[in-house]
Design a protein around this nucleic acid. Structure first.
Lengths: 259, 259
DNA sequence: CTGATAGCCTTTATGCCGTAAAGAATTGTC
DNA sequence: GACAATTCTTTACGGCATAAAGGCTATCAG
């Protein structure tokens, strides 16, 4: 499920994001029992625990002792709610990184913080990047990476490429891990069971696999296996993550040297 | 929407993927009016045109002059159908790349082919990577990249990291473009309209933006704008893609030199 | 104190979705 | 001709977002 920015009244949704709502004029009618904030918190809790696919208006309402429809008093639609969740979650990220040892360790630290963030809130990965939410914390996050990378001396064009690359890298790693964590509860089959059953079936259905796919067979060969009890895929991803990060940093360094 | 591999009868779905179905024993009952192949083709056509979110059993059935339920005669569930779509689409990719000028241009060519493929079939990006489909064409695709990269002399551990990095990069770029292409038809608002309205509202709601987010403001400054008529975001992405690819190739080269 | 009015929230209804269950129609074997 | 297997349709269930209507509540103007 890809979620696009709410397409309702754009002015209203921007106002919600930037908290530029009118202050508390006294108005007739019952006191509000909820607020945008508690709704967003409840929605984040649901999405953290059960994933974006399981996030529904009814479920969020229920968690707050209301019907799903009650939320529409505070939020124009589910799309806007997701935007608000997204920008609120992003607030967890650090506003700046230590540059005293140069940009290299700072980028590494950024990547690790950001990966951890995505793993805490995997649903964030499903929010479309094509139509950015344009909330304050989205800009703050961007600000913090660019602040690091600008010290490399690269120009805006190059830097946009590097930033995109960094995000794609971290998001890709996070996506693999988070999907594999969600899969057991969604499918009722643990990772170990699944892989074992599948690789058995693969031999059955594709005899001569090693001859037909020699490169795949070779690259899957293990130099060192997962530690005791560590899930297979997560071990692979963390290996992959550190290798990829090193390659990336070297690539940036090459760009910097080239000017 | 993230789609997991079908969790029905694993043996049946592997048999479907690898075409190891029993041949045509003569059997009682009406002749099948459809086949797995025509269903998969129809489903791909729907997904290409309207996106994964719009893919439904009813819609595929309708396109074939049947009800949605009729498909369940051929395919155990929607999940397996998506697996089949995925592996079938992957068959479009080249089986090998020209290595006569070394791995660098071959990787570049791979990246461009793969990007174009994802843009032809954007829904492919929504198929979960955590529980691979394990069909023949998925392995063939992997085989073709590894065949290129193995000529660098890097070991399996390093190479897995590089492969993941390459995929994350291409998929990230493809995702941004494809979402921005889909957004107008899903939201009824064109990219130009959307960006214009949003940036106007942003100034209204976030005065002093340039002071608050100086790095963001700087990095968004254009060295050169989009060509005439070229969509804003697509221009940015293609710029970003070539910069990112260069950085990546340099990073790989550094890893190769380091041994 | 008395409407009027605005805002909160629920109920109901519409049209989607995947798919389970039941049954009609068709085609083969004995 | 009886039986069984197979294709496909109809109907039904529980889920989804959300439109529409109405009940209840708190503040206003008179």
């Amino acid at each position: 499920m890809v979620v696009y920015a709410g397409q309702g009244d754009a002015r209203r949704s921007m106002a919600l994001l930037w908290r530029s709502g009118e202050p508390g004029e006294v108005r007739p009618g019952p006191k509000p029992g909820l607020s945008v904030d508690v709704i967003v918190d409840a929605a984040i809790a649901v999405a953290d625990r059960e994933g974006m696919a399981a996030l529904s208006m009814r479920k969020v309402g229920e968690r707050l002792g209301r019907t799903g429809m009650a939320l529409y008093t505070y939020v124009p639609s589910k799309g806007e709610l997701v935007d608000l969740m997204y920008d609120r979650a992003l607030a967890e990220l650090p506003a700046g990184y230590d540059l005293s040892d140069g940009w290299r360790p700072a980028v590494a630290s950024w990547a690790e913080h950001t990966l951890a963030f995505y793993l805490r809130h995997p649903w964030v990965l499903q929010v479309s990047q094509a139509r950015p939410v344009l909330g304050p914390n989205e800009f703050a996050m961007l600000e913090s990476v660019v602040a690091i990378l600008r010290t490399t001396g690269l120009g805006p064009r190059r830097l946009r490429g590097v930033v995109a690359l960094l995000f794609d890298f971290v998001r890709g790693a996070a996506k693999t891990v988070s999907e594999s964590r969600l899969a057991p509860s969604e499918t009722g089959v643990s990772d170990e069971e699944w892989w074992q059953a599948r690789s058995f079936l693969l031999e059955e259905v594709a005899p001569g696999f090693a001859d037909r796919f020699p490169m795949v067979t070779w690259i899957e060969s293990d130099d060192d296996g997962p530690g005791a009890g560590e899930p297979y895929l997560e071990h692979r991803v963390s290996e992959t993550f550190s290798v990829g990060l090193a390659v990336l940093l070297d690539g940036i360094e090459a760009a910097v040297r080239a000017g």
